[in-house]
């Protein structure tokens, strides 16, 4: 299996050769683990449980994967749903948000699209961003994470959250405004 083989091609082959699923696990386990951590801030053991669940569901439903869609958004969709189900099933509430040292990248990504000074300053402490993100609504936080941490395209976010692309753009714009407002509050 070469590096150039796309996820979509591997996904198609998994239906015939199940062992190929290992390649998809290799490609996605770290990425999804980071996403779960950002969304839940759970311990490694609990995150592994969710991750295992994600891969099991992905394998079971691989035949439902539409090759016209990106595999990335398909597996993110499963991951996103599994996290929500885990919250509901275990009556677990978000224990806070965990963001690694990539908060600068996060702000740079926003600043590239947004002209607001507050994002361009780049001198925000990780704690400030974390606090601001914690104080905005779940809907906006998720879309910001998907766009600026996970770096998904609008179409991919539309596939993950199952909303039209136009709604993604609207929600993202509102989310940035909400975050900007919160950052200004935390700065004071």
């Amino acid at each position: 299996m070469s590096e150039k083989t796309t996820d979509e091609q591997i996904a198609a082959q998994v239906q015939v050769i199940p062992e190929m699923f290992g390649f998809l696990i290799d490609r996605y386990e770290e990425k999804l683990d980071r996403y779960i951590q950002r969304q839940t801030n759970l311990s490694q053991d609990l995150r592994n449980d969710i991750l295992q669940d994600v891969f099991v569901k992905s394998y079971q439903n691989i035949a439902s994967f539409d090759p016209n869609m990106s595999f990335n958004s398909w597996i993110y969709r499963i991951c996103h749903n599994t996290i929500i189900n885990d919250w509901k099933k275990n009556k677990r509430y978000r224990t806070g948000i965990s963001f690694d040292l990539e908060t600068n990248t996060f702000l740079q990504n926003i600043a590239a699209e947004e002209s607001a000074d507050v994002f361009a300053q780049g001198n925000h402490l990780q704690k400030q961003i974390q606090e601001a993100l914690e104080n905005i609504s779940e809907k906006y936080r998720t879309i910001l994470i998907l766009r600026y941490f996970e770096e998904l395209s609008y179409d991919e976010i539309s596939d993950v959250l199952r909303i039209p692309s136009g709604t993604v753009a609207t929600n993202l714009s509102r989310a940035k405004k909400a975050l900007e407002k919160q950052l200004l509050v935390t700065q004071k």
């Binding site: 239906q15 592994n48 394998y59 079971q60 035949a63």
Partner: peptide, 26 residues
């Protein structure tokens, strides 16, 4: 992490987890 991969691949091998048929989705 390798444990996770091996664990899932073993389950696939043992038939503990199976793919849902494409006919079902269709």
């Amino acid at each position: 992490m390798d444990n996770l991969k091996n664990n899932i691949l073993n389950k696939i091998k043992d038939g503990e987890i199976k793919q849902t048929s494409s006919w079902y989705f269709l």
